[in-house]
């Protein structure tokens, strides 16, 4: 596995794999060159267009996916209603359906009025949200099941309504689940291909479909350079999400502290 990756990375740094193995950075330059124009920074590289599209679509869909997933998890854990088990099963279904099937069915569903979404960014976001939501649901259900119901009830008896309780008590304790949902949905949005391939358009081209296009044209160097950059972007995104959501601090019992007079008095 390691050797495979090393091989892949090496591809970028040689002129033409298999033919001319001179070391070069020209593939990176072709993909991601930047220069100064009259109005400021010009993204002259070939890959920038699909790159920014992918980043923006992923950045929009990740929070939406996490929100929908966690809200569904809240309903599943804290509420009871008729047909709950069926509903829970239904949320997992979108996980099981192959991406190609989803892609084709979205086209069929949203190609004609009243809802015309094909060729827009919205259809991509919609596809990602419902494709990746099950992870948010499972992570949310797992995390919320560990929260004692009495925490909710304590908050209610102290005068808080459900929204305040959710904001101040439940969500802070769900931070690990939120990070998991955000990272997963962001990375999946960046790397999805099977559904995306049907939903891209001239205006909204995603990185993955662009890369496939390059490979079909035998432009391996560019394709791999782009892929490598995507890897680093996703690594960075994990750090960003962790920094944004923050860590959950609930502390741990420390081993025996030395007694202080204040502790002795109060004990």
């Amino acid at each position: 596995m390691d050797g495979f990756h090393h091989c892949g990375l090496l591809h970028d740094f040689v002129n033409t794999w298999g033919l001319d193995h001179t070391f070069t950075l020209k593939h990176y330059i072709t993909a991601f060159s930047v220069s100064w124009g009259e109005e400021g920074l010009l993204w002259t590289g070939a890959a920038w267009d699909s790159f920014w599209t992918t980043i923006s679509i992923a950045t929009v869909s990740a929070p939406l996916t996490a929100a929908v997933g966690l809200l569904t998890a809240y309903i599943l854990v804290r509420q009871t209603f008729a047909g709950k088990d069926l509903f829970e099963f239904g949320t997992m279904l979108s996980f099981a359906i192959p991406g190609t099937v989803i892609g084709v069915s979205y086209i069929l569903a949203f190609n004609i009025p009243p809802i015309e979404l094909t060729g827009t960014g919205a259809i991509l976001v919609l596809c990602f949200v419902f494709r990746n939501m099950p992870v948010g649901v499972r992570a949310g259900v797992a995390a919320m099941s560990q929260l004692d119901k009495s925490l909710d009830e304590a908050s209610l008896t102290l005068g808080a309504n459900s929204w305040y309780t959710c904001r101040k008590v439940v969500l802070p304790l769900l931070r690990p689940a939120i990070i998991a949902a955000l990272v997963y949905s962001f990375v999946r949005a960046m790397t999805a291909i099977s559904a995306v391939i049907f939903l891209v358009s001239a205006e909204y081209d995603m990185a993955t479909s662009y890369i496939i296009g390059r490979v079909e044209n035998n432009d391996y160097g560019l394709a791999i350079a782009y892929s490598t950059v995507l890897i680093f972007v996703m690594l960075a995104s994990v750090l960003v999400f962790q920094g944004l959501v923050g860590e959950r601090k609930i502390g741990r019992r420390e081993p025996e502290k030395t007694d202080t007079p204040a502790q002795n008095q109060a004990a």
Partner: peptide
């Protein structure tokens, strides 16, 4: 509450 229900965070 029996389990105290203190907010751990």
């Amino acid at each position: 509450f029996q389990s105290y229900a203190l907010f751990p965070h």
